[in-house]
Measured scan of single mutants.
Amino acid sequence: MASQGTKRSYEQMETDGERQNATEIRASVGKMIGGIGRFYIQMCTELKLSDYEGRLIQNSLTIERMVLSAFDERRNKYLEEHPSAGKDPKKTGGPIYRRVNGKWMRELILYDKEEIRRIWRQANNGDDATAGLTHMMIWHSNLNDATYQRTRALVRTGMDPRMCSLMQGSTLPRRSGAAGAAVKGVGTMVMELVRMIKRGINDRNFWRGENGRKTRIAYERMCNILKGKFQTAAQKAMMDQVRESRNPGNAEFEDLTFLARSALILRGSVAHKSCLPACVYGPAVASGYDFEREGYSLVGIDPFRLLQNSQVYSLIRPNENPAHKSQLVWMACHSAAFEDLRVLSFIKGTKVLPRGKLSTRGVQIASNENMETMESSTLELRSRYWAIRTRSGGNTNQQRASAGQISIQPTFSVQRNLPFDRTTIMAAFNGNTEGRTSDMRTEIIRMMESARPEDVSFQGRGVFELSDEKAASPIVPSFDMSNEGSYFFGDNAEEYDN
Rank of each mutant, 00 (worst) to 15 (best):
G300C: 09
T157N: 09
M159D: 01
N125G: 13
E339Q: 11
K229T: 07
S84E: 08
E11Q: 13
C279A: 14
P83V: 14
Y496Q: 06
L226R: 11
Y219C: 10
T62K: 13
S170N: 02
N397Y: 03
A271H: 01
Q409K: 10
S50I: 14
L315G: 00
F488G: 02
F464P: 02
G249K: 07
S473V: 15
T424G: 00
S359R: 06
T147G: 00
S262A: 13
P453M: 07
M13N: 00
A70E: 08
F71W: 05
Y40M: 14
T378N: 03
T15L: 11
L133I: 08
F230E: 05
G282I: 06
L298E: 02
E80V: 03
I41S: 15
I425A: 04
E73N: 13
F230I: 11
Y219R: 00
N321C: 14
K325L: 04
K91T: 04
R216L: 04
I138L: 15
Y78Q: 06
I445E: 01
V190P: 00
F304K: 00
V299E: 04
R267Y: 03
E11S: 03
G35E: 13
V476Y: 00
A332P: 03
C44S: 15
L172K: 08
E294P: 00
N417F: 05
D290H: 09
T171S: 15
I406A: 00
M371D: 01
L49E: 05
D16E: 15
A260D: 01
S269V: 13
Y40Q: 10
R400Y: 04
S84D: 10
R175I: 02
K87P: 00
I301G: 07
G485W: 15
G102D: 09
T232K: 15
L49D: 01
F346A: 15
I36S: 08
A237D: 05
A233G: 10
A451F: 03
L298G: 04
F420D: 11
M196K: 12
L56Q: 01
T62P: 00
L49M: 14
A2N: 00
R422Y: 15
R55C: 10
E494P: 06
M447C: 15
D88C: 14
M1T: 12
T171N: 15
I408Y: 00
V285N: 11
K470H: 03
L379K: 02
A286V: 12
R355H: 04
S245G: 14
R243N: 08
N432A: 08
V186A: 08
S310A: 01
L47W: 06
E252R: 01
L61G: 03
C164F: 09
S457I: 13
E369P: 01
E375N: 12
Y313I: 05
R361T: 08
V285R: 00
T45P: 08
K348S: 01
V280C: 15
A27T: 13
G288C: 04
R26L: 07
P419I: 09
K91Y: 05
E53R: 00
S3E: 00
G268H: 03
F39A: 08
K103F: 04
P477A: 12
A178H: 02
D112Q: 08
S28T: 09
K103Q: 06
L256C: 11
G268K: 02
S473F: 05
K184H: 08
L381D: 02
L79T: 10
T437Y: 00
E369Y: 05
K87A: 01
K198C: 05
G102I: 12
S467W: 05
N430F: 00
E320R: 00
E443C: 12
I96R: 02
I365Y: 04
S314Y: 03
P419W: 01
L328C: 14
E254R: 00
K77C: 04
F489W: 08
V190L: 05
M196I: 12
S170P: 05
R162K: 09
V299A: 11
A471M: 05
G177H: 07
R317C: 03
P89F: 02
Y148F: 12
F338E: 01
N247S: 14
S9V: 12
N395T: 15
Y487K: 02
